[in-house]
Computed example of a mutant assay.
Amino acid sequence: MRTSAIGSLPGVDVGAGVRLALESVSVPWLPEFPARGPWAGMIGRGLGIAVGLGADVVAGAWHLTAAPGLDLRRARAALRDDLDLLEENAQGLTGPLKVAVAGPWTLAASVLLPHGGRVLGDRVARRDVAQALAAGVADLRADIERRLPGVAVVLQVDEPSLPAVLAGAVPTEGGYFRHRSVERSEAAELLREVGGDVLHCCAPGLDVELVLGAGGAGFSGVALDQNHLTPATWDAVAPHLEAGHDLWLGCAPTHPPVAPAADALTRRVLQVLRPLELGPVAAERIVLTPSCGLAGWPPSEVPALFSALAVTAGRVDDELRG
């Protein structure tokens, strides 16, 4: 059974964080460090990856602009620096490397148009953002695989806003109204255009069939917070595990920001996996992760969390294969 992480790490020591991300889990990842500023968080990095967009932070919120502003230029520079550090520390790395990017629907729900109002409310604008993101993702994959020829990029698309987008629950900029719901077909189409491998959603109510089902968004895996996995969600996920999809199980709670004991974490994972009766299939298709990013954690607690995950993965693997 494999282990990995979701995205962010605390602090601003990018070099130490990259080394931790390469050494502490079986599926390494390129971390984000939001403590550096808005350009280094999920939305800033997503806009920095997108090709051909202008954006800037205005009054604390990201707005599309006619030309790249200072914060977008910082986002692109921070990503280049992070990739340089990754290349320096990951020479000889082979196998999967997970890279996260904000998805088109979370960007549309978070970013404002030049004169106000969310991108989500403008059908043309949200398609433009998705296409710019898709082009940037293709460039990012190629850049990483050029720098690290032995690596296969696993693209994690972060979509915490997707359930709200589909439910018509995203508030307008002023907060008095809600944007109308987006049709499932359009939601799937723009996700397919970006072309991710794993869709991560730390909000409850994700439509698993939209992500993994035939005719859906085309992802090979889904990353979910164990706290949000209801019996109905497990009923939707289990057949996809048997069919060869992956579940990145957010089993380690990130609130409060304290590393769990491996014994407690093992019990927590087995409590939900044993009833599925999938045996070795679960061991092969499930990746254990924290439930969400770790940006708000004390740096001293982070290594202990990944140590507990590694011990838990070994124990659960033995149990399911025994």
Rank of each mutant, 00 (worst) to 15 (best):
T3R: 03
G7P: 00
L9Q: 14
V12K: 11
D13C: 09
A16G: 14
R19A: 13
S26G: 14
R36Y: 10
G41W: 04
G44E: 03
G44L: 05
R45H: 14
G46E: 14
I49M: 02
V51N: 06
G54F: 04
D56L: 05
V57M: 09
A59S: 12
A59H: 14
T65G: 03
A67I: 07
L70R: 10
L70V: 14
L72E: 01
D84V: 15
A90V: 04
K98L: 11
A108C: 12
A109C: 13
L113A: 01
L113K: 00
G117F: 10
G117R: 11
G121L: 00
D122Q: 07
V124F: 06
R126F: 15
V129I: 00
L140W: 01
L140A: 06
E145D: 06
R147M: 02
R147A: 02
G150H: 10
V154H: 02
Q156A: 11
E159F: 02
S161V: 08
L162V: 10
L166P: 13
G174M: 01
R178G: 05
R178K: 06
R178W: 05
E189P: 07
L191Q: 05
L191K: 00
G195L: 05
D197N: 14
H200C: 05
C201R: 03
C201Q: 11
C201P: 12
C202T: 11
G216P: 07
A217W: 08
D225P: 12
L229R: 00
L229F: 07
P231L: 13
W234Q: 09
A236N: 13
V237C: 00
H240L: 15
L241R: 02
D246I: 02
G250D: 03
A252L: 05
A252Q: 05
D263I: 00
D263N: 10
A264D: 15
L265R: 10
V269D: 00
L273P: 02
P280F: 02
A283E: 10
E284S: 13
R285E: 09
V287C: 13
T289L: 03
C292V: 01
A295P: 02
P299V: 15
E301D: 12
E301L: 13
E301K: 12
L305P: 09
G314S: 08
D317T: 00
D317Y: 07
